[in-house]
């Protein structure tokens, strides 16, 4: 049965890469073959070895002699590294799912626009705040025009790594662009707050969407609720803290994102929604690849797998 799955590799054996590994293990359509790191004694590489995956601590270049081992690569390194990885993967004819801020490819939020990009070779996951909030903005903008959307993501200090901390402007700027480009708002703004409380807080997002006079509140509410259940299919801990709050000129959506606790702790909903979305995106590509390969063969094989 495993042979029916699409083979994938992870580059980057930090928190995100390791959590990805655990999520891919649960996937029905992806099979992990390689975990690539640069730190030989990292926890991620050690766990990958224990679970029987092939590993290297010499970076992505070590994969060049194993090109039959994977079709899709998750890049959980840094923006700087991804620029180079993106070139290599393109030469190798592999699909890159970019979890860094590099954004070589277009922003993808699985519930909103994945289908548009399945023939591309590189897509980017925006930011954790973007994965959490863009679906909500889209839920509103698909029923009524949205001039402005603003989000506030609050994450536990312990789940904001050095990458986020040293490049916090990248978070706000990229997320804001995501709200517009993918969410469908004319203009977006993003704010991030780190909270060091102990025990750590679960990731919180507040989404403010400006509304025109006479916007259909029932339709907006319905669209939001529908979208929440769509996101819940890959992030079960994604939920509204209360019913959407309507004011004259805006709707306020209070969201909480609890992680699955695969490798990262449950409060790290910010990291969990990134890895969950990435796996969802890879599954989308996997389905598309298989569809292309099975053309001419019997379609029902797929469902048997």
């Amino acid at each position: 049965m495993a042979s029916e799955k699409v083979k994938v590799a992870i580059v980057g054996s930090g928190n995100i890469g390791t959590d990805l590994m655990f999520k891919i293990r649960k996937s029905n359509s992806l099979e992990l073959t390689w975990m690539v790191g640069v730190v030989p004694d990292s926890d991620g590489l050690r766990r990958a070895r224990e679970l029987g995956y092939q590993t290297t601590h010499k970076g992505i270049d070590d994969l060049k002699d194993h090109l039959d081992d994977f079709e899709i690569v998750f890049d959980a390194t840094t923006a700087h590294a991804h620029y180079r990885h993106a070139e290599l993967l393109k030469q190798w004819g592999k699909i890159a799912i970019d979890l860094t801020p590099a954004a070589v490819g277009p922003y993808v939020v699985p519930v909103v626009n994945l289908d548009q990009y399945l023939d591309l070779q590189n897509v980017n996951l925006v930011t954790c705040g973007g994965q959490a909030t863009v679906p909500m903005v889209h839920a509103v903008s698909r029923v009524t025009p949205v001039k402005y959307a603003e989000i506030v993501s609050t994450v536990a200090s312990r789940s904001a790594g050095p990458g986020t901390r040293q490049n916090i402007d990248e978070f706000t700027e990229t997320t804001a662009r995501g709200l517009a480009e993918v969410g469908g708002a004319e203009r977006g703004k993003a704010i991030i707050v780190l909270n060091p409380a102990d025990p750590p807080i679960i990731m919180r997002n507040t989404v403010y969407v400006s509304l025109e006079k006479g916007a259909d509140r029932e339709a907006i509410k319905g669209s939001i609720e529908e979208m929440v259940s769509e996101v819940q299919r890959y992030v079960p801990g994604y939920h509204l803290k209360s019913a959407p709050i309507f004011d004259e000129d805006r709707v306020t959506i209070l969201l909480e994102v609890e992680g699955a606790g695969d490798y990262l702790p449950k409060f790290s909903g910010n990291l969990d929604i990134m890895t969950s979305a990435a796996v969802r995106v890879a599954e989308g590509f996997a389905g598309h690849l298989k569809k292309r390969k099975t053309t001419g063969r019997e379609r029902h094989q797929e469902s048997v797998a």
Binding site: T154, V193, N195, R204, T206, L254
Partner: peptide, 21 residues
């Protein structure tokens, strides 16, 4: 009590809704 920090104005709505409920 919840150790909210500067900038978390959105939590004021959150808490108010909870208290009202």
């Amino acid at each position: 009590r919840r150790k909210m920090v500067g900038g978390q104005e959105d939590m004021i709505i959150d808490v108010a809704v909870e208290l009202a409920n």
